[in-house]
Design a binder for these strands. Structure first.
Lengths: 194, 194
DNA sequence: GTCTATAAGCAGATAGAC
DNA sequence: GTCTATCTGCTTATAGAC
């Protein structure tokens, strides 16, 4: 067991990060303000600047995904190729049910709509770190196109379900949604495309 | 032929509308400013307010779709049920190739990420005016869910192709993209969902 | 680590002259 | 229909005391 007082004299840095994630997810990039984040975290706005330097760096440093994307891609690619689409969507749908993880994805999607840097971040993470490696790992033809197609469906789900909040999608639980979306991803990932 | 001078002494109103559409599409809602639109249209900012009253009304009045959605839904629903998915995506992909029409869809998607009113507008138009009626017209079970699923794929395509600008999607022409996306929409619209 | 004070700028909206 | 001038409020960011 750790004894004595841990380094750092307060939890302000993490309080700020948590408040930032919530606000980026709910308000988008532009409407999230340093002042608003500071107020929600119960600190002075200047302290936010002290820790993160700028609004853009606050976004980048607090909105990183908490898992190792390439490793996850390998894990999902391993196993039966006939059910890989289902595994992918099931993993992500479960992740999006958790408010903390969902905030990261929704915040990134919202920010991408107005902040080009955020769009680049999302695009690269999708094509280069998660879905891209996954598609290559599977060994199908045209992996870049397949990864991009999978991404369209994933982004569209996040946008419709959590940003537009389309009513008809709400009653679906993870298993039902996976059953509906799985075949689409399966086709994009491994089946002949035309 | 119409003779004489038409009513209205200038094209300022339409100049403003055109500039607004372009900026909403490229910058999103928050970063589009009355002042910026006025500058692009070559008029005074106060003139924008004179014509449209507020920024929100400028958005709503200039970003209306130029076609009659319910009528289009009927038109697309008529014909072979086995190819309706293909007809829908072909029509929309062709529409999105035209910069003027594309600006409306992209602008609405961008705005929906930050402005709740814009999200409501997009959600209602999708579920109540275009895809919803289409799904009901076809006569499949669970039309609301089917319409919502179709919407996820359509929004995801617009977002990935025109906002994230994913490289792998760019080389596809209308016909190629329709061949890839058609089966997904076809399944969401008429095939058994699980 | 935390705060006060403030710089410097841009936003939407209004009033009213012409 | 068009413009000038301005109000009011907000933003990110900096400098520096404690």
């Amino acid at each position: 067991m750790a004894r004595g007082r841990r380094p750092g004299t307060s939890s302000s840095r993490e309080d700020i990060a948590g408040a930032a994630r919530t606000q980026f997810a709910e308000l988008g990039y532009d409407r999230t303000t340093i002042r608003g984040v500071a107020a929600a975290a119960g600190v002075d706005p200047a302290l936010v600047m002290h820790f993160y330097g700028s609004k853009q760096r606050l976004f980048i440093e607090t909105m990183q995904l908490p898992f190792d994307a390439p490793a996850l891609a390998d894990e999902l690619a391993a196993g039966d190729r006939a059910t890989v689409g289902r595994r992918v969507i099931e993993y992500l749908l479960a992740a999006w049910e958790q408010p903390h993880t969902r905030a990261l994805f929704v915040g990134r999607a919202r920010a991408s709509a107005s902040e080009p840097e955020a769009a680049k971040l999302l695009r690269d993470q999708i094509t280069r770190e998660l879905i891209g490696p996954l598609a290559r790992s599977i060994g199908a033809d045209r992996p870049e196109l397949r990864a991009a197609l999978v991404s369209t469906q994933l982004i569209g789900w996040v946008f419709a379900r959590w940003i537009l909040e389309v009513e008809a999608l709400r009653p679906l639980d993870v298993e039902q949604a996976a059953r509906v979306l799985g075949p689409a991803l399966q086709r994009y990932l491994v089946e002949p495309l035309d």
